[in-house]
Amino acid sequence: MTEPLFTLDELHKAADFVHARMPPTPQYAWPLLAEAIGTETWVKHENHTPTGAFKIRGAHTFIDWLKRTQPDCPGIVTATRGNHGQGQALAARAAGMVARVYVPEGNSVEKNAAMRAFGAELIVHGADFDAARQEAQRVAKAEGLAFVPPYHRELVRGVATYALELFTALPDLHTVYVPIGCGSGICGTIAARDALGLSTRIVGVVSENADCVLRSMAAGDYVETETARTFADGIAVRVPVPEAFDIYARGAERIVTVSDAEVAEAIRLYYRATHNLAEGAGAAALAALMADRAIMAGKRVGVILCGGNIDGDWFETVLSGGVPQV
């Protein structure tokens, strides 16, 4: 058995730090979800954070670490599809730092507006997230700013606080479904489970249109896909983050794919059953559970609703029975 990524004390200290800046999010078992799926389904509502997504947790702990270790650093540069950028902008600006955020062309209009509102200097660059990330890294080095990577130990320590909350409240969950983009969410969930010594199974969820994780696991090496065209933009990545991949490849029971049509149906179910908004990545875990309903029947299961920041026109399309095209 491998050593847990964090000790329980490290996670409790992160939770104390995060909770001084935002309250814990709730986890609810919605009866209409249980009725629709046939299993007791607990939703971890990360759509209820100050930025509408889980990323703010890791932003708080990362920026705190940065201020302590590099007190003279004037600011950060990062790349995002939206939720990571909102969190980093909020935390960096609160610490008196510049926040320069790169997004790809065609990025969510409403997420872009939210990042600017949180104080980000927003720059559009490249056709997808990975191109924006490469430019952000170049600029950070050229201008003496700190690059915020998609995976960093201090970032994951903050993200893991949502799973600490969930597992503390519900230590007997059979399985938890977690979406995988760059991997901080699933790594944080694995870390909290292991620190608490629980036996909960963790299932990672990726889009069938952005399946670099599955391809990499099959190949035994990191595989980059040519595109990642899914309206579940939070999981639209073309190549796994190696540090994160090494953790969830060992710590997850399995990785499954979902289609955009399945994600859209999960968004509709969330709205009908809970009247919560879920963005594409936020509904991916529920979509996977819906596909697994036969093997999960009668079990106590958790799903991570990692964000609710869906653009209005996409939500209109989904509610009318369609699937947003990208």
Results as ranks from 00 to 15, higher is better:
residue 292 D to I: 01
residue 287 A to Y: 01
residue 267 I to P: 01
residue 272 R to I: 04
residue 319 L to D: 00
residue 301 V to P: 01
residue 284 A to R: 04
residue 287 A to K: 00
residue 313 D to R: 15
residue 268 R to G: 08
residue 292 D to K: 00
residue 297 A to P: 03
residue 268 R to N: 12
residue 282 G to N: 03
residue 283 A to Y: 00
residue 275 H to R: 15
residue 289 L to H: 03
residue 299 K to A: 09
residue 274 T to V: 08
residue 307 G to N: 08
residue 267 I to T: 09
residue 321 G to Q: 06
residue 311 D to H: 07
residue 304 I to M: 04
residue 314 W to E: 12
residue 277 L to G: 05
residue 269 L to E: 11
residue 266 A to I: 07
residue 270 Y to Q: 07
residue 278 A to R: 03
residue 320 S to V: 02
residue 276 N to T: 07
residue 315 F to Q: 09
residue 267 I to H: 08
residue 322 G to R: 10
residue 272 R to F: 10
residue 274 T to S: 13
residue 298 G to N: 13
residue 276 N to H: 14
residue 272 R to D: 15
residue 269 L to V: 03
residue 281 A to Y: 11
residue 289 L to F: 08
residue 282 G to R: 01
residue 305 L to I: 11
residue 276 N to C: 14
residue 295 I to S: 13
residue 272 R to A: 15
residue 315 F to Y: 05
residue 290 M to H: 07
residue 300 R to C: 12
residue 311 D to A: 06
residue 279 E to R: 00
residue 286 L to T: 10
residue 273 A to I: 02
residue 317 T to K: 13
residue 318 V to L: 15
residue 318 V to P: 02
residue 308 G to F: 11
residue 287 A to M: 02
residue 277 L to F: 15
residue 305 L to N: 14
residue 288 A to R: 01
residue 304 I to T: 00
residue 298 G to Q: 05
residue 285 A to Y: 04
residue 287 A to G: 00
residue 285 A to D: 03
